[in-house]
Design a protein around this nucleic acid. Sequence first.
DNA 1: GTCTATACAGCGATAGAC
DNA 2: GTCTATCGCTGTATAGAC
Lengths: 189, 189
Amino acid sequence: MARVQAERADAVLALATTFRLHGYEGTSLTAITAQTGLGKGSLYHFFPGGKEDMARAVLDEVGDWFRREVYEPLRADGPADQRLAAMFTAVETYFASRHLVCLFAAFALGQERDRFAAVIAAYFSEWLDALETATGDRELAADTVATLQGALILARALNDPALFPATAARAQSRAQTRARARAHPPLSS
Amino acid sequence: MARVQAERADAVLALATTFRLHGYEGTSLTAITAQTGLGKGSLYHFFPGGKEDMARAVLDEVGDWFRREVYEPLRADGPADQRLAAMFTAVETYFASRHLVCLFAAFALGQERDRFAAVIAAYFSEWLDALETATGDRELAADTVATLQGALILARALNDPALFPATAARAQSRAQTRARARAHPPLSS
DNA sequence: GTCTATACAGCGATAGAC
DNA sequence: GTCTATCGCTGTATAGAC
């Protein structure tokens, strides 16, 4: 079902790349028209709210992806080990193919934070909640998400892409060990 | 020794706050003049290279602080436990009083990353090296710095300042436990 | 739906008086 | 060293033809 006319969904994917490369403030409409191939007319047709509208559409799309591919598997049935494995696989695949940048984290650090505060907070708190559901351990959830996010920063800062999967793998085995210990306590308690 | 005329060092401190609040792209010269109380004339007198020069001065100042208060204690004499404790105390104090933002991390995520790539990489690799010196464990070093940086993001994203010291405290006890286990292996090896 | 032309505010930076 | 005035450019956003 090929289409001649552009679709909003296609534009959102291209926009995600641009925002990942340049951040919110650093992304100009000129860069967007170059990346998407759409003129300003088309862009404002799809996103009447302008640049903020475009960014919001991207965050929504990413949020939906995580809800579907990361949070839901964490809340599914099955042993914690398996649920955690599903999460780590999805997350590692996702960031490896997206320039090792988490848009929510990037937006949380800039002045655009206030503008998107609600959706940023929702992304992370949903993630923490789902991890807590899977492991029964809120602190473990926070440690795990923090390690993953920090590993993304380190990988980017040191220009060492391999650092992310390596750090994520250790976080995974630590999380699985602790979840197992919690499910089957060694002695009493 | 009071002075009437402004000093570059004072300006750098004020600039740090501005860049932390707005990021690099989001910091305008107008915001800088408001925050520092200096006109453009004075700013360009102190920082002939303009905005990039100002940001670089801030990064240098922060880098020096970490070198002195964080990395050196990690390389000092004494048991690993003590060196790690010194690092965590310094880091927690630092970020608690500075809006829970690491400028190097913030700059690493935006489009200004390329401009400051060298100094950003130096900051993190020095930190990792110093931690490896203290613990003898490169992976532990990466996990620790990643957890701290991720905790900063989470605290900011969730607007929950307490999350940072709580997560840092767990990272500290984990690091000390692992460093101890490495220094005094339980059995053979 | 897509284009070109344009409005107009704000940007970083500079000049020159004091 | 600090100020004010101003430059040239780019930013987002809009208007209107097609």
